[in-house]
Design a protein around this nucleic acid. Structure first.
Lengths: 343, 343
DNA sequence: GTTAGCACTCCCCTTAAATGAGTGCTAATA
DNA sequence: TATTAGCACTCATTTAAGGGGAGTGCTAAC
């Protein structure tokens, strides 16, 4: 069977209506509220066809139709009309240029949740690909060395290293110079064993302890930074009856609190994200079990200096895709204007 | 009317039974399952008295009795028998001595939630009262100075300061010496304006820019550290029907996600906490609106070096106080053994 | 002071009936 | 041949009624 123009129009009308009301859509509704000028009987025939093709289905006999995942997918891919949408508070927020990354991200999540009425999450930019700017070792105590590492974008990491033997000031100074000389300008990903070996050799004249410190520093630099994730508006799921029953709500809330799975989800969205940087997962398309009845829309953002993170919005399958995608696109644009251009 | 021994026993029996079942307790139940050997009629008379005194009430005519807040309060203050209870995983966890405070706290919250089946929260230790151990300024870029501050317990703070004029190496070195000389060993609370003034004077020989940097450092040290709070098991609230309806659950979940209010709650519990360090808030005793139908039990913990934080457990009013208080006490003891003794 | 007995209350569950939205199918129509 | 009107049918949802049961308060007897 072919999906002709009329069927498309009817499918679109069904989906639009269902997105608004959340109620199964009947033939009479379509007949009345479209410009197709067809009787409900005709619509019924067409709807039966659409059901056979798998785009819509009935929750039970003698109920109206609701879109299937396949129907939503077609809608998102081909029928959606992005709503131009600007988040004004977001713009203000970004112009202020929070000095604390953490605060900025938390606020972004919150504003977005209030704006869309869905649950939101946001991952802090990853620093693995940004370049080292500055390394410094200092003695804090006898036996304790503080390593401070600054990467592009002024993200700072610290670590306290314990050493057996004490290092004298001179050695420490030399070590600092050595580390900066070799590692400066490299990204964390680029630091490899060969390089560490060369450094150790260079430092070999001093003592074995130096080697130990270098290892510890390399370790600290590469340390699995646990992807920070901020969420907001989790309780928005209660607005949508299809997600609000105890079983589902409980699982979703747990997912949002534990954050582990959110991290994987955002990670995947980030890497798998095509040219536009926006991705939509409908129902079972997500890997996350608790979100099988949800849709997830993600957007990759960039703060300049190679710092990329991902924003995610989680709502019911009947989420307002037009609005959500529009909003995310607007945020991308705003961020680009502020950070993107100057690289 | 007087609360004689027999009434106390009956009240205790009512509460114990209600904690277990969550169902209103009838006179017949008490008559059968206590060693008082009284008929249900007698119990009924006594229960009418207890109701008049405000310790119990009926959710509706011809239902059994359930404890009032006043009843719970009496129970917690005078009738509770703390259950000896050790959280074994906790012990293992503590012995491993996570190097990352964050990880340790997250795990503590999680284990506690699994153990008690309630929602848990934990505040990271505050550093305001711990002593400064080490300060260092370094030049990262022209115009950007990195300030690293280490306080007791090896908690590290950093801040990037922007300065107009460039500082030469020598000035920087002197500044470092100056800051360490004056501030080392002081707690953040103890740094005051007078002290800063003295430092500025001392540095006066150099230039006005130095004064600017000192101000920035003082600011950075005192910067409102936003109380980190980790939560776990929020979804446990769904185990208790009296908290699980949408309205209440949604508000509670929001409170747990936004964390702002939790912070205030833990803060208050911390400061107001008497000798044992454990506090119980029943129902309306909390300031937090969304927890009016909950009970909250908090415990102050200490990690040595003056680092104190607070653990909180949130559950229904019919929470198992004996178990919760016992568990928290056990954790306090374990932490004391590990950190407390050596100060 | 304690207890047995009894009428009464009120929640809760089950069942039955009424309602109404929506469908599929058939036959008539343009 | 495509469209439409008409109609019987389905099924979720709401409403009402009735029975059961747990538990109470009160009274009178022990």
């Amino acid at each position: 069977m072919e999906l002709d123009e009329r069927k498309k129009k009817i499918l679109q009308a069904v989906i639009r209506n269902y997105l608004e009301t959340g109620e199964p859509v009947g033939s009479r509704t379509i007949s009345k509220y479209t410009d197709l000028n067809l009787s409900s009987a005709t619509i019924r025939n067409e709807m039966a066809d659409l059901e056979e093709m798998g785009y819509i289905f009935q929750p039970h006999t003698s109920a109206g139709r609701i879109p299937s995942d396949k129907g939503y997918r077609l809608y998102v891919d081909a029928m959606m009309e992005e709503k131009e949408r600007e988040v004004v508070e977001m713009r203000d927020m970004l112009v202020e240029r929070q000095d604390k990354m953490e605060t900025l991200l938390k606020q972004m999540a919150r504003v977005l949740a209030q704006n869309t009425q869905y649950a939101t999450m946001i991952s802090a930019p990853q620093t693995k690909r940004s370049k080292l700017k500055f390394i410094q070792l200092s003695r804090v105590d006898a036996g304790q060395i503080l390593a401070v590492i600054v990467v592009e974008g002024n993200v700072i990491k610290n670590n306290i290293l314990s050493v057996q033997e004490e290092l004298d000031d001179e050695t420490l100074l030399k070590l600092n110079i050595l580390l900066n000389t070799y590692l400066n300008g490299l990204s964390i990903d680029e630091i490899n064993l060969a390089m560490i070996a060369v450094m150790k050799q260079q430092a070999g004249i001093h003592s074995a302890i130096v080697s130990e410190v270098i290892d510890a520093v390399a370790e600290a630099i590469r340390a699995e930074e646990d992807l920070e994730i901020y969420t907001s508006g989790t309780n928005n799921i209660f607005r949508y009856p299809e997600l609000a029953d105890q079983q589902k709500a409980s699982e979703l809330i747990n997912t949002f609190e534990e954050k582990q799975l959110l991290g994987e989800l955002l990670q995947e969205a980030h890497t798998g994200s095509e040219e536009t940087g926006i991705q939509v997962y409908i129902g079972a398309e997500t890997q996350v079990q608790s979100m099988k009845d949800c849709s997830v829309v993600t957007a990759t953002y960039e703060l300049g200096g190679g710092m990329k993170g991902t924003i995610g919005i989680v709502g019911p399958k009947r989420m307002d895709y037009d609005k959500v995608v529009g909003t995310l696109r607007a945020i991308q644009t705003q961020l680009d204007e502020l950070y993107g251009k100057k690289g």
